[in-house]
Simulated scan of single mutants.
Amino acid sequence: MIAVGAVITWTVLTVVRVIFGVVYFRDCPQQPNIPNYLLGLALISLLMIPFVTLPCETYAAQPREHPRGFKACMVCLMGLFIFTWSLLGVVWVFSVYQPNYDPSATDGLYCNKTLYTFAFWNVVLETFGFGVFLAKFCKGMLCYVNMSPVNSDFYNNV
């Protein structure tokens, strides 16, 4: 039941990111990359669909022409892209923190308040999600190191 709610939330968030990115594409001359950031997040979500929905590979189903490391390499590249895109989003959004929301500004530099607020909270929640992921990863690594069997021959030979 939780998985269904997560998929629905993920789908709605992707659609809303596309809508905000397209509708407000030219409404932030102060930092024109903010709509691109939202569209990129939606693209990342769409590119992740095959990795989430396809069943796990087995040795029997593994085609001979595609090595097993290919999928691992693609997942690694996708993770690197997501991390880089998220860092760029943080830079783009926070570089104009509290932008001018008035479209009639004399210098023409403003950002739509709705667009900026939505992008701001996307950045904050995404950064929080990375923090939770990193904490869980560190906890898992700590448990792995603590639970690993000790090679007694190593200590006897020292």
Rank of each mutant, 00 (worst) to 15 (best):
M1K: 07
M1T: 08
V7S: 09
V7P: 13
I8K: 05
T9R: 05
T9D: 04
T11N: 08
T11A: 11
V12T: 05
V15N: 03
R17A: 08
R17F: 06
R17H: 11
V18F: 06
F20T: 04
G21N: 03
V22C: 07
Y24R: 04
F25K: 09
F25E: 05
R26E: 09
C28G: 09
C28N: 10
C28Y: 07
N33R: 15
N33L: 15
N33K: 15
I34M: 08
Y37V: 03
Y37P: 01
L38F: 09
G40A: 06
A42T: 05
A42W: 01
L43E: 02
S45R: 05
L46S: 10
L47S: 04
M48A: 13
M48R: 12
M48F: 12
T53K: 10
L54W: 10
T58C: 02
A60Y: 11
A61K: 10
R64E: 09
E65I: 14
P67D: 07
P67M: 03
G69I: 02
F70C: 06
A72R: 07
A72D: 09
M74Y: 02
V75L: 10
C76D: 03
L77T: 03
L80W: 01
F81T: 00
S86R: 01
S86Q: 01
G89V: 00
G89T: 00
V90M: 07
V93C: 10
V93T: 12
V93A: 08
F94P: 07
S95H: 09
V96L: 02
Q98L: 13
Q98F: 12
Q98C: 11
N100L: 04
N100Y: 05
Y101F: 14
D102K: 12
P103V: 08
S104F: 14
T106Y: 12
D107T: 05
L109D: 06
Y110S: 07
K113Q: 11
K113Y: 06
T114A: 15
F118I: 07
A119N: 03
W121P: 08
N122R: 05
V123E: 01
V124S: 09
E126G: 01
E126M: 00
E126C: 00
F130V: 03
V132R: 04
C138S: 11
K139W: 15
G140T: 09
L142C: 13
L142M: 14
Y144T: 14
N146A: 15
S148T: 14
S148N: 13
N151L: 10
Y155C: 06
Y155H: 08
N156M: 14
N156S: 14
N156I: 15
N157A: 15
N157D: 15
V158C: 11
